[in-house]
Design a binder for these strands. Structure first.
Lengths: 187, 187
DNA sequence: GTCTATAATTCGATAGAC
DNA sequence: GTCTATCGAATTATAGAC
């Protein structure tokens, strides 16, 4: 049966995202992806060349972060935590970046770029100093990715048991501090 | 050349830990581990049966957490952050748990057990209520593992650039709050 | 666009000689 | 204890017919 290239390509990408999200880079095989998309494995090669380029195409993400300038300064923490929490459930973006970035260098680089390009600039407006902003972005990323890791990847029972509101209540002050808190002096 | 079983076994375990730490579960092949240990791959099978059991033997960890009862209550945050930071540099334990737990279910289970058995009880003494303690332990784990992830695994430039003292200065108040802070009410 | 066939590797695991 | 040889399965990737 003959399908237009766009349809087949989209089906492959959708299947690839699912596999990368649940299996990580190594275990997500081209054969399994092709089977999920109901096409021949050779079609994947035809459209994307090799596995690396398939991943590159499947891991093009927009975190779609909210405009923190539009929210009151004392509520940016809550806003960002809430966004990341819902973001996790909207699609597989964060799950893919986490599962693949841990064992594959190209995927790690992709994760670095996504966060640096999208989270960094968001915070510059809040802080002013660009150098400070990058540090604060890393702190925010560490807490948000860490919670995602414990809750959705490693599935720590107490982290899974927490309600979304509980997570928001606990993490918001932390993120708020990383975003707008006074810079602590190390000694 | 004939070596005592204990020596060979120890060499295999050391090589296995290194490989699991840097490559994750799937990419850490028995052949590569054997090569690192300068022995034949079949020896690995002889001593450990299969790859699963090799991992189980290599991932038996003691986080060696400090006794928080011996430290002033307002300094437990700093103490724990400092411990995790040095812990990361002492050996490959945390790196193994992170790199393998993300893509391998048995490894994830191991990570859950290690944290539940060693971090949980530590916090019970601080909180009293066991249910609360598990939640707080998960929060602590989320921030500590998240920072380790960004700094050592994904290697976010700003996270790598931070000094140990900077990390301690930023994370200590967060961990202190997760350990001893008032429980926020979600709404 | 779709598929078969297959090359070239690589992996975990086994059998058995010494 | 140590090694060779090898099996069976799975992988990425290519060539080419239709």
């Amino acid at each position: 049966m003959r399908r237009p290239a766009e349809v087949t390509k989209a089906a492959i990408l959708a299947a690839a995202r699912e596999r990368f999200a649940t299996d990580g880079y190594e275990k997500a095989t081209i054969r399994a992806i092709a089977a999920d998309a109901n096409i021949d494995p050779s079609m994947v090669m035809r459209y994307f060349g090799n596995k690396d380029r398939l991943f590159a195409a499947a891991a093009e993400f927009d975190l779609d972060l909210p405009d923190l300038n539009a929210t009151p300064r004392d509520q940016v923490g809550t806003a960002l935590v809430r966004h990341f929490l819902t973001r996790w459930q909207v699609d597989d973006a964060l799950q893919i970046l986490l599962r693949t970035g841990v064992t594959n260098e190209a995927a790690a680089e992709r994760t670095r770029v996504v966060f640096a390009a999208q989270l960094g600039p968001l915070i510059i407006h809040l802080v002013g100093d660009p150098g400070q902003a990058q540090t604060r972005a890393a702190l925010v990323a560490s807490q948000m990715l860490g919670m995602a890791l414990c809750r959705y990847i490693l599935r720590f029972p107490p982290a899974v048991a927490m309600s979304d509101d509980e997570v928001i209540a606990w993490l918001s002050p932390t993120i708020q501090n990383y975003l707008t808190g006074e810079r602590p002096d190390p000694h």
